[in-house]
Design a protein around this nucleic acid. Structure first.
Lengths: 208, 208
DNA sequence: GTCTATAACTAGATAGAC
DNA sequence: GTCTATCTAGTTATAGAC
C-alpha cells in the first residue's frame, strides 16, 4: 500500500472523529506509520490533504448519485419525495463496499466540513461537484412543484442539516439505540429512519 | 464593565463564529482588551470558560423554556406538535433582549458544542439542565402519543440536528436569502421557517 | 486584580542528508 | 521517496512583580 494511500486512510478516520482542526499531522502520520514530512511531500499542505480526502469519496459517490437523480428527473411519472431521498441510499451505501465504514465516515466528514473551517468545504463541494446539487433540486422540484425557489432553499438546507448532523453523531446514536432500546442498528438503519423524517419535513404545509 | 464580563462577551462571539477549538485565548483577551492571564485567573482554564459562556445563556433560557413546556404538559387539551415547538420561540427570542444577537449566538454555540470537543458539551447540558429535556419529551409524548420511546428518540435527535445545524449557519443563510431572493430575514424568521419543517418531520408516518 | 515574562508544549512546514 | 532535525509561530498555563 502506497504512502499516499496510507495517509489518506488514516486521515479520513481521524478527521471524521475529531474534526479537521482537531487532528494534527503528527497524529495522522503516526497512525499511518509514515514519516511526518510525507504529508507535505505528497499533498503540499494540510488543506490540500483535506481536499484529497473528500475528493476520493466524492469521485466515487457523485456519478452514481447524479445518475440516480437524473433517472428520476427523466421519468414520465412524478416521483414522491420519499423516492427522491431514497435515491441517495444506494450511492451512499455503495461507499461501504468501496471502504470499510465508508458511508459513515463520508457523512461524518461532510458534517465536519460544514462546521469546521468556516465554509471552505461547502465552497469546495459546490464548485467542484455542482452537478449533484442541481440534479437534486431538479428532482425535488419535480416531486413537489408547489414549493417555490425560496421555500425549497430553506427546506433543502434544513434537510442537509438533519442528515449531516445526524451522521456526524451516528456512532453515538447507534450506541444509545443499542444500550437504551436493545436495538441493533447500522448506518443503513439510521438512513432509513431519517428518510421519512426529511421527506415529511420538505412536504410540510407551506406557510406564507 | 468587569473583566470577567468583558471576557465572556468577547468569548461567546468568537466561539460562535470559529468554534471552541478554533478560538485561542489570545484572540479572546485581545478582543476583550484584557490581559492574557486574566482568563486563567478568573475562570481557571479554557474549558471552564466554555462552561461559563454556556451557563450564562442556559440560566437565562432554561427556566422560561421549562415553564413554557410545563404549561403545555399541564393543559387539559392535547397540544399540536407545532405548539410544542413554538414553545421554544419566546424563550429563545428573549435571549435577544438579554444580549445583542443573543438568540443567534446561543444557537450557534449549541451547534459548536455538539460537534467540537467530542460531546463534552452534550454531557454538560444533559447533566446540568436535565429538566429541559424531560419536559420536552413529555410535551412531545403528549402531542403525539402513538410514537414509542425509540421512535421519539430518533425523531427528536433529527430535530435537534436540524435546529442546531441551521442555526450554526444562520448568518450565511440570512445572507443568501438576502442576495438570492431579495428577502429580509432575521433569526426569528429562520426559526419560524424551521418550525413547520421539524413538526412535520416528527409527525411523519411511522415505518415499522 | 492586573500586569510582564516566560515556561512548557504543540502546531504546520521545510532544508538537506541519504 | 523517505528520513532526521529543525524552524517559526502558535498554543495554554503559570510564576512572581506590582
Amino acid at each position: 500500500m502506497s504512502t499516499k494511500t496510507k495517509i489518506l486512510d488514516a486521515a479520513e478516520v481521524l478527521f471524521a472523529d475529531k474534526g479537521f482542526n482537531g487532528t494534527s499531522l503528527r497524529e495522522i502520520t503516526s497512525q499511518a506509520e509514515v514519516n511526518l514530512a510525507a504529508v507535505n511531500y505528497h499533498f503540499g499542505s494540510k488543506k490540500e490533504l483535506i481536499k484529497a480526502v473528500m475528493s476520493r469519496y466524492m469521485n466515487e459517490l457523485s456519478p452514481r448519485l447524479e445518475s440516480a437523480l437524473n433517472a428520476l428527473c427523466l421519468e414520465e411519472v412524478k416521483p414522491t419525495l420519499i423516492e427522491v431521498f431514497s435515491a441517495f441510499l444506494e450511492p451512499l451505501l455503495h461507499l461501504n463496499s468501496f471502504k470499510d465504514n465508508g458511508t459513515s465516515t463520508f457523512l461524518q466528514l461532510l458534517g465536519r466540513g460544514y462546521t469546521d473551517s468556516q465554509g471552505f468545504l461547502r465552497w469546495f463541494l459546490t464548485t467542484q461537484y455542482p452537478g449533484v446539487f442541481t440534479k437534486f433540486t431538479q428532482a425535488v422540484q419535480k416531486a413537489y412543484p408547489e414549493l417555490n425557489k425560496e421555500e425549497m432553499f430553506w427546506r433543502l438546507h434544513f434537510t442537509m442539516g438533519t442528515i449531516v448532523f445526524t451522521m456526524s453523531s451516528s456512532d453515538a446514536l447507534i450506541d444509545i439505540a443499542q444500550n437504551d432500546f436493545d436495538r441493533q442498528v447500522d448506518i443503513a438503519g439510521v438512513i432509513k429512519q431519517v428518510i421519512p423524517y426529511v421527506a415529511a419535513g420538505v412536504a410540510a404545509p407551506i406557510v406564507r
